[in-house]
Design a protein around this nucleic acid. Structure first.
Lengths: 260, 260
DNA sequence: ACTATGAACTGGCTTGAGCCAGTTGGACTG
DNA sequence: CAGTCCAACTGGCTCAAGCCAGTTCATAGT
C-alpha cells in the first residue's frame, strides 16, 4: 500500500504521499469507481496531517480527473462512462433526408435520452477566424449564427455553434428554432447549389473557459474538445462552419477515412 | 476593472474576486501573453487577503490554462503557441518512400527543430483494447511494441506507441532503433501484402496520467489528446495500431476527408 | 575577466484554527 | 403516515504564520 522503498528516506511531500496512496488504491480497483473516499478530516487524521494537506492531496487527484468532490456529500472516484462517439460519417449521405440525428442515435445506443436546446439565432458580425474560413470579406452582420446545446439525459454534452453566410441563409427558414441543428439544414444548401463534398475539421483540446464550464457543467479536471468544422462543396468552397465544444468526459470522435 | 455591479453586495469569495480581476486583465490584453503577474504576496496585500487566498486565485487560473506558475520566477500569462497540426494526410501516399516525416515538416514550418527518441522496443503481451482491435487472439507476447517520444526544440510533444502483430514484425528490422517511427515502416507491410487502405482513429481528451505528465512535462491545466489509430488494408484487416498521446497546448489534429 | 557567495526575491507546501454551506437521516410533530 | 426540523456529517474557503526550495543578480574574492 505504501509506495516508498524500504530503507530510503521518503522525501515526498505529505500531500503527494496521500495522493499517491489514493491513486494507487484507485488504479488497483481497491477503491471502485463511484465509491466514496474517506472524508478530508479522516484522511488528515489517519496520516497525521492538517486537513488542508489532505485537501490538497484530493485536489491533485481532482486535477488528474480521477476523483470528483461533491459539496456536502463526499469525494467520489469518477467512473468513466462510455463516450458518445461522433464520427465523420455523421455527415454521410445515408443520413440525409432521413430525419435521423447521429447524436441522438448514439445517445439511444447507450440508453440515454438525447435532446437539444436552441440558445440563440442571430445575424451577427463574424469573428475573425470564422470570417477567414468562410471567405466572408464584408464583415457587417454578414453571417447567421445559431447556438445549440445538446443534452444526454440531464447532462449538457456539447455546445454547437453554426455560422452560415447571410447570403445563403436569408429566406430559408433557418431562423426557425424547430430545425434540429445542422442535420436538417443541408437540403437548403443543396437547393442553392452547394452539395457537401468534403469536410475539414480542426481539432484541439483545452480546459473550458469559465463560461463554457458553466454551460457544460464540467467537473474540475475535465477538458473540452474543440472542433472547428467546415463544409466544402464540389468546388472547394466553404459554405458553412460549425464549432463544437464537447465535454471530453462524455464524448469522443471517430474518423474512418480512406488513405488518399 | 472591478467586475461587480454598483449597489449590489459583492458576495463572491475573495479568491474568485481576485481570479476574475486577473482573468479580465488577461482577456483584455492588459496583461499580455508572456508577462509576469504580481507576486502572490503583492496580490494578497493589494486585496487585503492572506497569501493563501491569492494563491488559490492563481490556481483557479492555472486550472483554466490561462497562467503558468514557475517556481522561483513568478506566474506568467500563458502564450498560446501555434499548434503543430497533424492531418490525416500524414499517412498519404505522397509521403511514402520519400523519407519525409509530416511531424518534422510541421516543426520546420514553425522554425522548430523536431526530433524523436526511442524509449523502448519490446515484444509483449498486448493490452486488451489493443488485442481486440488488432484481432490478436493469442495473447502470449504476440505483439511488438515500440514507444517513441517526439520533441520540438526542447519540448516533448507527443508519445507514440506502436503495436504490430509479432507474426508481421518478425525478421523485418523493425526492432532497429534507427527506423524513424512509423513513417519508415509501411513498406514492410506492403511487402507482406498489407497496403494501407483506410485509417480509423478514435479520439478523446483527458488530463494526463501522472506518468504521462512527467514524460511530456505538461504544465498544470494542459490536457492531452489521446488518439487510437488503426491502419486497415484492402480487406478491412487491422494490421497495425498506434496510440498517440499529445500535449494539447502544442498539437492539434486536422482531418480533410471526403463525405461518403 | 572569471567565479563563488549570498541576500532578496519568487512560488511550494504545511500547520491548526475557524466559519460557511450543502446533504443526510433520524426524531419529533401534526 | 407525511411532513418538518435539526444535529451531525460532508466539502469550500479563509486566515496568519512559518519554513523550504528554486531563481536572480549584485558583490566580493580570486
Amino acid at each position: 500500500m505504501n509506495q516508498h522503498k524500504e530503507g530510503e528516506p521518503d522525501d515526498r511531500k505529505p500531500s503527494r504521499k496521500i495522493a499517491d496512496e489514493l491513486r494507487h488504491a484507485i488504479e488497483t480497483g481497491e477503491l471502485a469507481p463511484g465509491s466514496k473516499l474517506q472524508s478530508e478530516r479522516e484522511l488528515a487524521e489517519k496520516h497525521g496531517t492538517a486537513r488542508n494537506t489532505a485537501r490538497a492531496a484530493i485536489q491533485l487527484l481532482a486535477e488528474e480527473g480521477l476523483v470528483t468532490p461533491e459539496h456536502g456529500r463526499g469525494v467520489f472516484v469518477r467512473k468513466q462512462q462510455p463516450l458518445i462517439r461522433l464520427g465523420n460519417d455523421r455527415y454521410s449521405h445515408k443520413y440525409r433526408g432521413t430525419g435521423l440525428s447521429p447524436f441522438l442515435l448514439e445517445c439511444a445506443k447507450q440508453g440515454k435520452t438525447g435532446r437539444f436546446e436552441v440558445l440563440s439565432i442571430e445575424r451577427i458580425q463574424p469573428p475573425a477566424d470564422v470570417a477567414e474560413r468562410l471567405g466572408v470579406s464584408d464583415k457587417t452582420k454578414s453571417v447567421l449564427r445559431r447556438e445549440n446545446v445538446f443534452w444526454a439525459d440531464d447532462d449538457p454534452v456539447q455546445r454547437v455553434t453554426t455560422y452560415i453566410p447571410w447570403t445563403l441563409a436569408r429566406g430559408t427558414g433557418l431562423l426557425q428554432e424547430d430545425i434540429p441543428h445542422q442535420y436538417g439544414i443541408h437540403g437548403v444548401f443543396e437547393d442553392k447549389g452547394h452539395v457537401m463534398h468534403r469536410i475539414r475539421e480542426e481539432i484541439s483540446a483545452r480546459m473550458p473557459r469559465a463560461e463554457e464550464a458553466r454551460h457544460l457543467r464540467t467537473p474540475p479536471g475535465v477538458p473540452v474538445i474543440d472542433v472547428l468544422h467546415t463544409s466544402l462543396d464540389q468546388t472547394g468552397n466553404a459554405y458553412e462552419l460549425t464549432r463544437f465544444v464537447m465535454r471530453a468526459d462524455m464524448t469522443g470522435l471517430l474518423y474512418d477515412v480512406p488513405v488518399e
